[in-house]
């Protein structure tokens, strides 16, 4: 086969993937109101964004939600991965299967099932319902990240710790946790990003008491173009990018 043909093709597809992102970032610095014509360089939309109280509030709400959802899902996900790795117990396959189903099923299916649960047990929709939902969809990703790390792990280490008299808890704290630390960080960052970006599940399980960023963007972009959204989108993109690079860097460094 020609050498340059695959390369040209790859380049072309990557261009298509990145052009819309680049357009958005460039237009976020556009002075013009209409959003299509170039009116010169300006930071006015960033200024408008941070002067919008409701928007700033939603931003903090989103950050706090993502922070707490990532932390709790990392905790539970890591424990799950450890249990799956170390223990034999009845229903292990079922547990694995349930995590797999959560990951594979369309988000909207998860969304309505959680909404039905929350409303039927009479829970107020807001921070708590969002948190429970976000932890649930982040969980499988953390489990997979940690499991991958554990599968390349020397089994004799925990055994040695046990032989030296360490209890299960002490062994986990002193031997297993340090080993899976990079995976925990990567899983946390993944969860944080998933939570921050989620639209589908949040649409169903959030209430007026706790407005979050993606839903605010959603209600803005449904009705025409809003230059502030360009600025917000650009900020979110840069933020996600930093998180992604950080997590990959942690994983790569730990492999050496």
């Amino acid at each position: 086969m020609n050498r340059w043909l695959p390369r040209t093709y790859l380049t072309l597809v990557y261009l298509l993937l990145y052009v819309p992102i680049a357009v958005l970032v460039v237009f976020s610095f556009n002075e013009s109101r209409t959003g299509y014509d170039w009116g010169g360089l300006s930071l006015r939309w960033y200024e408008a964004l941070f002067n919008n109280r409701a928007m700033v509030k939603a931003m903090w709400n989103s950050l706090w939600l993502a922070l707490s959802a990532a932390t709790i899902s990392t905790l539970i996900g890591a424990l799950t991965a450890l249990a799956l790795h170390r223990y034999r117990f009845r229903g292990k396959q079922v547990l694995n299967g349930m995590l797999f189903v959560v990951m594979m099923s369309p988000e909207i299916v998860l969304a309505i099932s959680l909404l039905a649960l929350f409303l039927l047990v009479g829970m107020q929709l807001g921070y708590v319902s969002l948190l429970l939902a976000h932890v649930t969809f982040c969980l499988p990703f953390v489990v997979i990240t940690v499991t991958a790390r554990l599968s390349g792990f020397d089994e004799r280490l925990p055994e040695a710790a046990r032989d030296l008299g360490a209890s299960d808890f002490v062994m986990t704290r002193t031997v297993l946790i340090p080993v899976i630390m990079p995976a925990l960080l990567a899983g946390w960052l993944l969860g944080f990003t998933l939570s921050l970006d989620d639209v589908v599940v949040s649409t169903f399980v959030s209430g007026p008491s706790y407005e979050i960023l993606p839903l605010r963007i959603y209600s803005m972009v449904r009705v025409g173009l809003k230059p502030e959204v360009n600025a917000l989108g650009a900020l979110l993109l840069v933020f996600s990018l930093v998180m992604l690079i950080l997590s990959q860097w942690i994983l790569l460094r730990s492999r050496r």
């Binding site: 970006d197 989108g233 993109l237």
Partner: peptide, 11 residues
Amino acid sequence: WTNSLVRTYAL
């Protein structure tokens, strides 16, 4: 990893 809503809006 980036916000799918924002990318749809970019289109």
